[in-house]
Design a protein around this nucleic acid. Structure first.
Lengths: 255, 255
DNA sequence: CAGCGGGCATTGTCCGGTCAATCCGAACCA
DNA sequence: TGGTTCGGATTGACCGGACAATGCCCGCTG
């Protein structure tokens, strides 16, 4: 069927991948079982397994033991870092309607702690030696499934005794609270890293094998360029699209 | 050493992962060989291999056959979607200096073609049935290593006969050319998807196993909300940080 | 008809092995 | 001294096998 220079497990994977690409196999379909592949390609179970394992690592296929392997589906939700600063809901949504954005934030587990913070966080908050941070840790869930991990770090001295330290949902938003505390953000810097999850993240987000994560770090600065907040978001790659809108600086129509 | 309920290959992987986390093993260090692990944990080579394979898929470890397995290093370059629209180089670079941003764009291979375009692209450009697109495909390299794939799609009717159709570097930038053609962009929409690479992408970007990609799609609109350009960037996850700056709308200091 | 339980198909974890491919370095030769 | 050859260490690609874990279905039972 395929060329002979490639390894057998690659040929098997290629064949299945091609079937997924051309629509012979669609999302939700079951793949041939390991035993079937073993027979069809006249090989060992080990080689058939290796082929499937590669497809799993590519995020194309999931295993539902002991039912078999299935073609994976992908339904990303829109993740919009800018919405934090925007009053109006976004316009510019030509194709957005495709996305499954219906299911609402059902729940979020919140806990608050006083911590040292990782070097990454300490650096971004420009904490002095020995200075501590407060962190609000949230796991956001949609329909029971965890969607992202959201850890917001503050200088402890900025927020001590405030509403931010209470492990309850702040209805009007923590940004509003920060404004009231006189540490409102004037601008912020977003960094997005892409990598495979740690086993811990994988567990907390209930990620399937072959699912990378996006780490979105927001460092907020007040009017004097002083960092006042550092938010670390870990997003499941298969459940998100990150969206930004950009307007050209000297644009004529700034509706 | 570790608990017994977890599987043996997981224990081995956990131990090595812990050593990487706590600095016993640092970037570039060699891992124990499969034979060593086999003996140390009194197991089969297969199990030792499985443990290492997991670490490879997590992006923590690379194989340099036949020298052994090594702790992977990560040196991301800053990728700044907004720079396209900014005249001045960015300010707000408190910790940016950490990043290895020194090596310059050494080369980029360009080719131009007239294509139908994938459904994704057609939809974003709002192409009518049968309408064709022009595409400038680029692979950008730094020091010989490919860094990202950059495919810019245009409506063929917009750019036919223009400089954009020439497979050569356009010194003053294609955006400038588009302005001159009267199809300048007023705003644009960025989408960022995170997933594992296809084998083709993996090959073109020379990705190591366990490296996800970010797909950054920019749809550019003119003053009348008409899409005039759609750029698809595929970025190697281990070689990029995506960075945005955001200024609060009604900010007082808009320096 | 509902609930329980046991068989069964399938994947997951392990064991054992062989041979090939690859890079390094040391030994050897010109 | 400089190049070349060759062996060794290591990973990669396969083979074969055994048993465990897990849902699902079906048939039995109350």
């Amino acid at each position: 069927m395929t060329s002979s220079s490639r390894h057998l497990y690659q040929q098997i994977a290629d064949d299945i991948r091609a079937q997924i690409a051309d629509g012979t196999l669609v999302a939700g379909d079951q793949l041939p079982t390991e035993a079937e592949l073993q027979e069809r390609y006249d090989t060992s179970r080990h080689t058939a397994r290796t082929a499937i394992a590669h497809l799993v690592q590519e995020g194309l296929v999931i295993s539902r033991r002991p039912r078999g392997h299935f073609v994976r589906e992908r339904r990303p939700m829109v993740y919009r870092p800018q919405s934090e600063f925007k009053r109006k809901p976004p316009e510019l949504d030509i194709f957005m309607t495709l996305m499954a954005d219906d299911g609402r934030m059902a729940a979020q587990d919140i806990d608050v702690a006083i911590v040292e913070g990782s070097p990454d966080v300490r650096q971004r908050l420009q904490l002095a030696d020995g200075e501590l941070a407060a962190v609000r840790r949230r796991v956001r869930k949609v329909e029971g499934e965890p969607y992202n991990i959201n850890d917001s770090y503050f200088r402890l001295s900025d927020v001590q005794g405030s509403e931010i330290m209470h492990p309850a949902n702040v209805e009007r938003g923590t940004n509003q609270v920060m404004d009231e505390l006189g540490i409102g953000q004037a601008k912020c810097l977003d960094e997005i890293y892409v990598r495979m999850p740690t086993p811990d993240e994988s567990h907390r987000l209930q990620l399937l094998p072959g699912t990378p994560v996006a780490v979105h770090i927001v460092t907020g600065f007040d009017g004097d360029e002083r960092p006042v907040q550092c938010v670390v978001n870990v997003l499941a790659g298969d459940r998100h699209v990150i969206v930004y809108e950009r307007i050209r600086p000297q644009a004529e129509s700034n509706q």
